[in-house]
Simulated assay, not measured.
Amino acid sequence: MKIFPIKKSIASLIIISILSCSSVKTATVSGKVLAIQKGKDGYTATIENSKGRIYYGTISIPNLKNLQLFKQAETGDTITVKGELWKMGKEKQITVREILELKHKNITEAKITGTVQSVEKGKDDYTAKIKTTEGTIYFAVISIPNLGSAEKYREFKIGEKVTLFGEIWKMGNDNRITVKKNLD
């Protein structure tokens, strides 16, 4: 029986697909973020582990197991991710399913007191623009996972005076606080 060229091509594609899928494995990668390449639904982080190996971690909202776990890394941060490890040429890639830990390079914990200027709702959280008594503007990210439980979560209203405790960091020129406690 003769096999036509199209059938040979399809058979070859199926065999290649099966072989390439078998080389994908789940792994955990930890290291320093050397670079960030922004994408449509997330970003790619270039991660260097303690042995000097480079991994390219695709971190996107659709790929994560839990959308609430999406976190934006910055150059210089340390990160631990879990997902499918694979190669593209000689480059080691990881499709991130979970961000296990993210430590920002310049994070300090602090308490701020101010007045809510605006509230922008997200899918699983919200960001409140807070103007402190000193006149500094902070964008406060408020979510159940960061607070630790649903009982601690509440939505602020514009004009409300609040005292918050959390991790202070920068995104571009904006001051941010990832709220860990509402002290009111």
Rank of each mutant, 00 (worst) to 15 (best):
Y43I: 04
F139V: 01
E91F: 09
G135C: 03
K111P: 05
N106K: 13
W169D: 04
K181W: 04
W86E: 06
E134T: 12
T26W: 04
T133K: 13
D174F: 11
T44H: 08
N173Q: 11
K121C: 01
K152S: 06
E155H: 10
Y55E: 02
R97W: 01
S17M: 05
I47K: 00
P62I: 09
E160M: 06
I158A: 01
K90W: 05
M171T: 05
M171Y: 14
Y138K: 06
I47R: 00
K71C: 03
I16R: 07
G76I: 05
K105T: 09
K170A: 09
V116A: 09
M171P: 01
L19E: 06
T78F: 05
E134P: 00
S22M: 09
E91R: 12
L67R: 10
T26G: 12
T58V: 14
S22Y: 11
T46L: 14
T26I: 06
D77F: 02
V29H: 01
E98Q: 15
V24S: 00
E155Y: 07
S23H: 07
T115K: 15
D41Y: 14
A150I: 13
P5C: 00
T75W: 10
V29L: 07
T44M: 15
K82V: 11
C21G: 10
K180G: 02
T108Y: 11
T80L: 14
T28K: 10
R53D: 10
G89R: 07
K2F: 12
Y138R: 03
K38Q: 13
P62E: 08
T46C: 14
N106P: 10
F165G: 04
A73E: 03
Y55N: 04
S12M: 07
A11E: 12
N49W: 00
V119G: 07
Y153K: 01
G148Y: 08
S60P: 07
T80Q: 10
V141I: 11
K92D: 13
Y56D: 03
I168R: 00
I144Y: 01
L34H: 08
D174K: 11
D184Y: 01
I6Q: 09
Y126I: 06
I14Q: 04
V96C: 00
Y138P: 05
K123G: 02
S12R: 12
K129Y: 00
I158M: 00
